[in-house]
Amino acid sequence: MSTWDFLLQPAGFDIGETGLFAFEATQPVWRALLVGLGNTLRVSLPALLLATVLGLLLALGRGSSSRSWRLLSSGIVDTVRLVPLLLQLLIWYLLLVEWLPDANEALPLLPRVWLSKGGLAFPWPAMGDGEWAWSWPVQDTFNVQGGGAVTPEFLAVMLALSVYTGAFLAEVFRSGIEAVSTSLLEAAETLGATRWHVIRRVLLPQALRTIVPATTNQYLNLVKNSSLAVAVGYPDLVSIGNTTLNQTGRAVECVTVMMALYLAMSLLTSAAMNAFNARQGLRGGQP
């Protein structure tokens, strides 16, 4: 019997949330790991988006002409960067499971969006009677029913990753823009370029050359950092790999699978970045 046969055997454990996949304990181990990989991506991709938005807002705040916005943004950026991500994740999780209302009296965040200890429920398209239709969450006697839902664990991981990465991205964006020499911008203005033209044609092309590689690094860090999900029990790739390891005792194989999958994700992203960079670097002529 080969050492890798355990991948085909029934997993024997359930997974709390499975995202787009369906999973039962009788399904093979490889499928459990696939669900874990799916969960890693499911929490990382929204976090990437949110981190970028937060990073832009914080960078704008730090460059604002109003002192109070500058103070607020640099306060957030500096504090977040000085505290370990794991501690921040534990704080977010604690806040979500302790201080949110119970599921029988959920907090209506927006119309049709409910937040409670049970997680976040929101409208989501669902297949019913052979056609797609919106499924709307409603407050029921005991909990919120219907719609799409994510658990507090998911929310904690997503928020912690977004805020942490957002603070680092704010610095990346700011230093990228500050690196462009002001005399170039002034020269463009003297030549009669409008403000929008200066930003679009002079500032951004140069700023992006330093911003893109550093941002990609932060994105890669975010995906790798999502492995901290194991600390709050969100079933990401590392959590499932850990459970599998404990169930089957296949330490070498389980750790190898986890590492190989992360490495593949990292290398694919790096390759994409290098391709993008090669194109960006060649245009404009300046080294």
């Binding site: 492995s227 901290l228 194991v230 590392v238 850990n242 390891l245 590492m259 992360y262 990292s266």
Partner: peptide, 22 residues
């Protein structure tokens, strides 16, 4: 360098916990 940089610290720590004793 690229191999170690490409994986999360947590998986490296799992290596310390489960693989190194082997």
């Amino acid at each position: 360098i690229e191999g170690v940089r490409g994986v999360p610290v947590v998986t490296l720590l799992f290596m310390a916990a489960f693989l190194l004793p082997l």
